[in-house]
Each structure stands twice: as structure tokens, then as C-alpha cells.
Nucleic acid binder design. Structure first.
Lengths: 120, 120
DNA sequence: ACAGGTCTTTCACGACCTGTTCACGGCCGA
DNA sequence: TCGGCCGTGAACAGGTCGTGAAAGACCTGT
């Protein structure tokens, strides 16, 4: 049960390892320090299989309830997450903005070269 | 049976050796003097495989029963454990706080360098 | 039973962390 | 150029945690 649950709840994306059950995120083996919102946002994004997640959906999954118009919480926490991911894994970008659509989570090298090999 | 149990109950993490069955903790070969609560807390943390342990779970495992809201016992004993571990093994930090999640047990050098090699 | 010490719990205060909101500015399409 | 959308820094209130000390509970030898 322990092994099975652990297996289900561990997400690996690039050099990221997310243990959803433990509230733990490892970046290159080192533990990240995330707040509850940051962690929830990361999990919601990472679970979306590289697709675009609409802001309304993100809000419902992480915050719960409906996203009120004018609420910028998501933007703020996307920013905080980006900062922490970037300082942990320099020259990798994970969160990509699709204006008018939402956010997409996928590892992409800051170096334009050799992306195809490492991305998926 | 003796050998098997001994094998199960000896935990080594960094320079720490915890003999759960004996109630003994060695730090760099030297024995620590821990109280019952301190020892229980240390064992509960050390057995969690580097994951984050929620305060509710810690309380149940060490104290038994439910953690009442407002009970600060855990905080106090985390502090006492930290003090004893630190005075035994200077420049190593074992207990890490994850605000809103709980505590994580893992050896990390106070020196930011050369961690990756020793952490796991 | 008594005295002294240790262990545990509780309290109080302050520092730090979090989540939310505001404000300003850049970018881009209509 | 205007307005919508987003990035980003900062301020604010409330919550969480670290820490020293006081107050009980417990244990041990005499």
C-alpha cells in the first residue's frame, strides 16, 4: 500500500520530483521550500500532462471555488513558483504563459539547442 | 531473530546512528542523552525516509492520541532535539521546517557547498 | 514520606512566513 | 492610442513557528 501509493503520487518532470502525498518537491535531489499555495499550484500544473490549464481550472483545483474577476492571486503565485524553480534549476523554464488561454507546464532548456532530446 | 530485529531497528542517517530497539542514539560515535519524548520524535522523523511528516502524524506516533489545536508540545521538543543534535554535530542541520506542511528529517551541511553528495 | 532533580506541558512574546490585494508598467491586438 | 492581459514589486493582516521561562508532573534515592 505504501509502495503503491508512493508510486502513484510521485511525478517526475525533467529534474523535478514531486511527491504529492508528502508535500515534498525535489529539484535535482535538493528539497524545495514551497508554501501551500505554491505546492498546490505546482501539482496542478504538473498533473496536466503538458497541456494548457485555464486559469479558471487552476483556481478551482488549488484555491477551490470560482475565480472572481480581478483576482490576481494566480499571477502572483505563478511568479513565486517561477522564481523558486528558476533559482533551483537555472537555465530551465517550466511554466509557460499562453495569453488568453492559461499556463502550460513543461521543462524547456533556456539554451535554444538540444531541446527535443530532453523535453519529453 | 535477534540479528533481523537489530537490522531493522538500526537507522543510519549521516553521522547519526539510531538504535531504536535500545533507545540509543550515537552521534559521531558518541552517545546522546535524550528524554523519552525527544527520542520518540527523533525516531518518528528518522523513519520517514526524508519525506515531510505532518504535525498531526508526529503527534499521533509519539504522543498518541489526537493533536489538539493550540498544543505546542511538538514545537518545544523539536527545538530541544535541534539543540542537542546541533551541539553534538556542529554545522549539520537535520530537522527542516516546512511551514504549513510539517517537518522533514535529512542531514544538510551548514556549508551550502558539497551537499548533493552527502544528502541522500 | 521527603527532598532534589529531571521531564513534560503550558504560557508569553516576538520573529518570520503566507496569502491577498494594490499599484505600476510593459506588451500586444483592435 | 486605447484597453485587456500579464509580470512584478510592495504593503498589509493574520497565521505559524522559534524560543525562553514558568508551572506541574514524575522519578529516584534516602
Amino acid at each position: 500500500m505504501d509502495a503503491a501509493q508512493r508510486h502513484d503520487d510521485v511525478i517526475r518532470i525533467g529534474a523535478l520530483e514531486i511527491r504529492a502525498a508528502d508535500g515534498l518537491v525535489l529539484a535535482g535531489g535538493r528539497a524545495l521550500t514551497l508554501s501551500v499555495r505554491e505546492f498546490g499550484l505546482l501539482v496542478a500544473l504538473a498533473r496536466s500532462g503538458g497541456g494548457i490549464v485555464r486559469r479558471e481550472d487552476l483556481y478551482e483545483r488549488v484555491w477551490g471555488g470560482e475565480l472572481r474577476s480581478g483576482d490576481r492571486s494566480i499571477d502572483v503565485y505563478i511568479h513565486k513558483l517561477r522564481v523558486k524553480l528558476e533559482e533551483a534549476l537555472t537555465d530551465w523554464r517550466f511554466i509557460h504563459t499562453h495569453v488568453g488561454f492559461g499556463y502550460r507546464f513543461a521543462p524547456e532548456s533556456s539554451h535554444p539547442f538540444h531541446n527535443a532530446a530532453t523535453n519529453r
